[in-house]
């Protein structure tokens, strides 16, 4: 399987390390032609303002948007989650509006409010180590399915169809479960396509 990571800015290396541990071939996406043969794409953590400007300047914004609308599976963490969603505290069109999820940037506060907290995953006994860095908050998951919450029930990992977002950073931990889920999503997407 070949997974692309949008590699214009952010914690690309951490995603790459986890994916390679799972036996996946990784491709950095910085130009449109890098998307050739990629079966799924990860939007990493970083600064969403920086990433979206570079995406726009490179033509990747429109291209990725079209490919994802066309069925390319995608997973976004933190800044990546913002870019895939509907952002409520910025001008219209700040995010790609690909997921019907309402999200707010830096909604926990500044760095000193960043936190680690256990995330409860659906159908999993063992909590997931949640790392929240200047994280956004999901205000309304809309029609998306909630796959992970904080202990007080706040949604932090949601999925709809071939799209998944988390407001935390699994790539900063050693826990591979959420990346495994994403790879399974990618497999399912291609099986449905074939059948």
């Amino acid at each position: 399987m070949r997974i692309g990571i949008v590699a214009l800015q952010g914690d690309v290396r951490e995603h790459q390390t986890l994916l390679e541990r799972l036996g996946v071939e990784v491709r950095w996406i910085r130009r449109e032609e890098d998307l050739q043969g990629v079966e799924g794409v990860i939007f990493p953590g970083g600064e969403s303002t920086t990433q979206r400007r570079l995406l726009k300047r490179s033509g990747l914004w429109d291209r990725l948007r079209a490919e994802i609308q066309d069925g390319l599976p995608a997973y976004g963490t933190c800044a990546g989650a913002i870019l895939l969603s509907h952002v409520t505290d910025e001008e219209e069109g700040y995010g790609m509006n690909l997921l019907p999820v309402k999200i707010r940037r830096n909604a926990w506060g500044r760095q000193k409010e960043s936190f680690e907290a256990p995330v409860r995953l659906v159908n999993e006994e063992k909590p997931f180590p949640g790392v929240f860095i200047r994280a956004p908050r999901i205000q309304d998951p809309g029609e998306a399915e909630v796959l992970g919450t904080l202990e007080d029930g706040e949604p932090v990992l949601v999925r709809k169809g071939h799209l998944m977002i988390s407001t935390f950073h699994p790539e900063l931990t050693e826990d591979l479960r959420i990346h495994q889920w994403f790879l399974k999503m990618v497999e399912e997407a291609y099986e449905t396509e074939k059948s």
Binding site: A7, Q9, V12, A79, R134
Partner: peptide, 10 residues
């Protein structure tokens, strides 16, 4: 260190 990682490539 996580915040430093988020600033990488910037």
């Amino acid at each position: 260190v996580g915040l430093s990682e988020m600033l990488r490539g910037g």
